[in-house]
Amino acid sequence: MELICPAGTPAAFREAVDAGADAVYCGFRDETNARNFPGLNFSRDELKTAIAYARRHKVMTFVAINTFMRAGQEKLWHDAVDDAVRLGADALILADFGLMAYTAERHPEQRLHVSVQASASNADAVKFLVETFGAKRVVLPRILTIPDIARLARQISCEIEVFVFGGLCVMAEGRCSLSSYATGKSPNMNGVCSPASHVRYREDGSELVSELGDYTINRFPAGEAAGYPTLCKGRFDIAEERGYAFEDPVSLDVMDHIDALRDAGVGALKIEGRQRGKAYVAEVVSIMRRAVAANADERPALLSRLRRLSEGQKTTSGAYEKRWR
């Protein structure tokens, strides 16, 4: 199975290549990609250099252009596609139908992958994208069980990529406006979720309060590790109950299920984390590389090392296991 690794900066890109990625995915430094965070991402020149580096090491480069084109400013997205093709991207990861149509028409030879943000969660949805835009691969939303994936794989004609490690969206990706409801900035339109520009931490007595826009997302008593105020990982009150209403601050880890995923027809494993540092990328990629090649009995030792890197040291198999629902 291919290992698809994140890079938010050229330094992280080199680390991912050196650590054994089969492909590295990255985006331009603007609103055309879903990790449009300050200080991250690639200029055209940086992407050119990165692709050359990857080629020398026989590694592929996927360029994520996976936000939705803003009406009236389509050129920004069209240019991103044209430039990524010109610079030699091995695949474009797209979410917007209009942009997929543009790419299929202007660059019919370009390999097109369906971003998780496109929300293709079933066979008919995938068939629609394959038939309409010639998509070669679909990245499945993190809301399917492994049996769901296996059933889907039997019905479709394109490759399947799934997220196996890193951040976890609780909501169906590409269909969430929680962030823009609280901050005016959304994943679909701006490539950000719970953006740092709207984050504030303040002390209240012995508690640390994290806020997003006008809303309190969490309160951390003294001694408890604080978290970033991602909206769906916040603590709220519902009736008399106080707790993590949507999801605990955990990250995804389905490395225990590698063999099941392979058997289900998954061809590529994706690591989330373009916003993480190069140290993280280097460590996660090198361990995952070994874990994918290892026997089932050698894997636990490798994976325990990996788990230390997870947010809050807590991980979940997420929707891949049915009981998560």
Binding site: A11, A12, P38, S197, K278
Partner: peptide, 14 residues
């Protein structure tokens, strides 16, 4: 926070 995040990411690339 956004400024500090930008600086952190910029440093990470260096």
């Amino acid at each position: 926070m956004e400024a500090m995040l930008a600086l952190r990411n910029a440093l990470d690339d260096c």
